[in-house]
Simulated scan of single mutants.
Amino acid sequence: MFLNKFLSQSGISSRRKAVNEIKNGHVSVNGHVIKDPAFRVKESDTVTYKGKKIQQEKHIYILLNKPEGYITAVSDTHGHKHVMDLIDLRGKVRLFPVGRLDKDSTGLLLITNDGDLAQKLAHPKYEISKLYEVVLDQNFDSEFFAKLLQGIKLKDGISKADKIFYTKRSSRKKISIEIHSGKNRVVRRLFKSLGYNVVKLDRVEYATLSKRGLNKGEWRYLTGEEVKKLKARHFEYAEPVV
C-alpha cells in the first residue's frame, strides 16, 4: 500500500493532505524519514507520524438521519448541538461527516473515518447525486421546472437541477429535486432566486444510499454490500499517488 494511502486509512488526514505531510518529513518508516508518498508500506513496517506510532483503523461507515437543530461538525465551541452527539460509539474512534447539511435541514448524512472515500465523494468531478424533498412557502409554478433544469446563475456560478418534480400531486408546495452540486445551501439559494423560501429541506438519497427505514435521529452501520456499491458505482479504486 502506498504511504499516503496508509496515512489516509489510519485517519491522519485525507490522501491529498497526507502527501504534504510526507513531503514535509513528518512520516518515518522503520525509523527512517520517508518523503516519497508512493513508498510501499508492508504489514511488518512500523510507521510513525510526528514521532507517534500509527496503525490503520478499521473503516467504519454510518448512515445518520439528521434531525433539525444539529450542525454538521465533529465539535463546536459555541454551544451548538452537532451530529456526532447523536452517535454513541464506545472507544476513541475518529469519525467525521461527509459533506454538509445546515442546522435547519434534515436527512441523510454519511459518517465515516475513511478519508480517501470522503475526499472522493466531496470532489466535484465525481458529480455525486443527492435527492432532496423540500417544502416551499407557496405553490411552485411548473414553468420554473425548465429554468432549474437549464441552470440558474448564482453568486458562485451556474447551478442546475438534474431532476425536479412535484413530490405529491396533491401539493404544489412539495418539490423533489435531484442535484449533484456540492455548493453551500445551493438548493435553498436556487429556490430563493425564483422568489420562493424553503420552509423544510430533507435529503432522502445520497449517491447509492437511502435513509428509508431510519427515523430522525437514528443511525445504523452500512452493510458490506452498501459500501461495495457506493465505491464501485462512482470510483475506480486503484492506488494513485495523490
Rank of each mutant, 00 (worst) to 15 (best):
M1C: 07
F2S: 09
F2C: 09
L3S: 00
N4E: 09
G11C: 07
S13K: 08
S13A: 15
S14H: 10
R15T: 05
K17V: 08
N20M: 14
I22D: 00
I22C: 04
N24H: 10
N24I: 08
V27K: 00
V29F: 07
V29E: 14
N30A: 06
H32K: 15
K35H: 11
K35F: 11
K35Y: 08
K42V: 11
E43R: 09
V47D: 02
G51L: 06
G51W: 13
K52Q: 15
K53S: 15
I54F: 07
I54S: 03
I54G: 02
E57Q: 12
E57V: 09
E57R: 09
K58F: 07
I60F: 12
I62C: 05
E68L: 11
A73D: 08
D76V: 01
V83T: 05
V83M: 04
D88N: 10
L89G: 05
V93S: 08
R94W: 15
R94T: 14
P97L: 05
R100C: 03
R100T: 05
L101K: 01
D104S: 15
T106W: 06
L108I: 10
I111M: 00
I111A: 00
I111G: 00
Q119W: 14
E127R: 12
E127Q: 15
S129D: 13
K130A: 04
Y132D: 00
E133I: 13
E133G: 09
V134F: 04
V135Y: 12
L136W: 09
D137I: 11
Q138D: 13
D141Q: 12
A146D: 13
K147E: 12
L148G: 03
Q150C: 10
I152N: 03
K153W: 12
D156R: 06
S159A: 15
A161K: 02
A161G: 05
F165H: 08
F165I: 07
S170F: 06
S171W: 07
K173M: 09
I175T: 03
I177F: 05
S181N: 06
K183G: 05
N184C: 08
R185N: 05
V186I: 11
R188G: 10
R189H: 11
L190K: 03
K192I: 06
K192M: 10
G195F: 15
Y196P: 00
V198M: 04
K200C: 13
D202N: 14
V204I: 13
V204N: 05
Y206W: 12
Y206C: 03
A207Q: 02
A207E: 00
T208P: 01
G213N: 10
N215H: 11
W219K: 07
L222C: 00
T223E: 00
G224Y: 09
L230R: 01
R233G: 13
A238T: 14
V242Q: 11
